[in-house]
């Protein structure tokens, strides 16, 4: 197969776009498309300060690289969860991020270590809570969202960017559709405006790329990323939905893309799910100040971590 632009041997064939490109033209294509969708969805401008949440995985490092190449003012945020899982998961992920930055010394990285800041790592902290006993993911996700919002707010960033790709979005959409979670469907969108209460504006500049395409970008760009998954993600629903979507995609190229784009189109043109957009009043949490739906008391993050610290004390003994 030949590159459509230069007729050299292609490195990547995107069946959903009927487009094959050589390594060099593929790199340019990904960068140009990212720019195009940042502009089309008015995600941010050249003067905005962007905080990229980087995990060490392919999508977030690829995103940071592309934003940097495009000349955006993008800093990185790495959240150290302290997950070991027998594979030293968090330390190895952090090493990938630090190696990425070492090759690009002009980039600024902020590291937040959960155990240092909050008193316990994952999953030990989640184990101590009522909601995280079985699986750490709900406590972990909520904690990460809180830390991201705080870092964006404290650092004076205009926007928080995550590396979610089209497969992530399509898998979420499939999950929410199978259970008709209209509230979630109402909120799913590649750009979420800032909230008056102080929640950062959130954008997903890679939402149009297949997971295969962002992985290909890291390979041809020579970006070394954390290949292993978090050990707690093994039977995540999202992976199951992604596999199902990939089966459809193999038989009918473009299925995933159309599934998600037509959902967006329905939201944009016929205001689908708009009535499910509940206007919950958010109040500042008396403890941390972040907006919360809890009218009389601290937010979920503060309550959960308060529980962790109380139980840590009873576990370890008050003298320590």
């Amino acid at each position: 197969m030949k590159c459509r632009k230069c007729r050299q041997t292609a490195a990547v064939n995107m069946r959903h776009h009927r487009l094959a490109l050589c390594a060099g033209h593929y790199i340019t294509w990904i960068q140009e498309q990212t720019e195009r969708f940042i502009k089309k969805y008015r995600m941010f401008g050249p003067d905005d300060r962007v905080l990229v949440a980087v995990s060490g995985g392919k999508d977030s490092l690829a995103l940071w690289d592309v934003l940097d190449v495009l000349g955006y003012r993008a800093d990185g945020l790495y959240i150290g969860l302290g997950i070991d899982g027998g594979v030293d998961y968090s330390n190895r992920s952090r090493a990938k991020v630090e190696a990425f930055v070492a090759e690009r010394p002009h980039l600024k990285l902020t590291v937040v270590d959960v155990a240092e800041e909050l008193g316990a790592p994952m999953p030990a902290a989640a184990d101590l809570t009522n909601r995280g006993k079985e699986k750490p993911c709900s406590v972990c996700g909520m904690t990460r969202r809180h830390i991201m919002n705080r870092a964006a707010h404290d650092g004076g960033y205009d926007v928080l960017a995550t590396g979610h790709n089209l497969d992530d979005e399509a898998a979420t959409l499939l999950g929410n559709t199978l259970s008709w979670q209209v509230g979630y469907l109402a909120r799913q969108y590649p750009v979420l405006p800032a909230d008056a209460g102080g929640l950062a504006r959130k954008v997903k500049p890679f939402f149009r790329f297949y997971e295969r395409d962002t992985a290909a970008y890291t390979l041809v760009r020579g970006i070394d990323y954390m290949y292993d998954e978090c050990p707690y993600s093994v039977d995540a629903n999202s992976i199951y939905y992604k596999e199902i979507l990939n089966r459809l995609e193999t038989d009918r190229p473009g299925t995933k893309l159309q599934f998600f784009l037509r959902f967006l189109h329905a939201k944009e043109t016929s205001r689908a799910f708009a009535q499910a957009q509940t206007d919950v009043t958010l109040n500042p949490c008396p403890s941390c100040g972040q907006p919360t739906a809890n009218p009389a008391g601290p937010c979920t993050f503060c309550r959960t971590w308060e529980q962790v610290r109380e139980r840590l004390v009873t576990q370890v003994g008050p003298t320590l």
Binding site: A215, A216, A236
Partner: peptide, 28 residues
């Protein structure tokens, strides 16, 4: 990835090729 290079699906496997398949799915 064949001999260290990304190839398209129509690539014909040659003798002595070193072939690796990189998984692209990540979860969580």
């Amino acid at each position: 990835v064949v001999n260290g290079k990304l190839v398209t699906g129509d690539y014909i496997i040659q003798e002595a090729d070193a072939i690796k398949l990189v998984s692209v799915i990540s979860g969580g």
